[in-house]
Design a protein around this nucleic acid. Structure first.
Lengths: 80, 80
DNA sequence: CTGTAGACTATGGTCGACA
DNA sequence: CTGTCGACCATAGTCTACA
């Protein structure tokens, strides 16, 4: 069973979408979620994939559910 | 804004739940998901937290959606 | 405000062996 | 079948600085 790797660009796209929807900058979000700003930048650009922990912190800071973000991600994945 | 760390034990509990529901051993699942068995063992016991990538591989191998697992996790988190 | 880069640290992940 | 350990390697994540 071959499983393709998770598309980092899609993950970043979805996270950026919800951040912008909340109208907050990377700077502010990274501060709220307590993660490095340059790292958040890398995640949104698909240069890095977050751990579940990091996704959790981002979602909590944005006051949205992880499942909401994951569902959006799954929709994007299906479109590929 | 203080965000508590994600409870690794809960994450492991949920993953173990869905693995057992599928009736597959850690050995088989780690093989299907192409991740190390000792690492899967550590995740289920809450000794380590997976990356989004790893969760994705596990869910794909179990033929379930990540969002399903995340929702279950969120239910558990709310109960705490 | 965001992208990038470098240097570094922490931890996720692999593999083999054994209870 | 699962837990654990040790040695390693890979990459997530931090921080500073500058375009």
């Amino acid at each position: 069973m071959y499983i393709p790797t998770l598309d980092a660009a899609l993950v970043g796209k979805v996270i950026a979408y919800y951040r912008m929807k909340s109208g907050v900058s990377q700077e502010v979000l990274s501060g709220l979620a307590d993660i490095g700003r340059s790292h958040l930048s890398a995640i949104e650009r698909g240069k890095r994939k977050p751990t579940l922990e990091t996704l959790y912190r981002i979602c909590t800071a944005l006051n949205i559910k992880m499942s909401t973000v994951i569902q959006k991600l799954e929709e994007e994945l299906e479109m590929q």
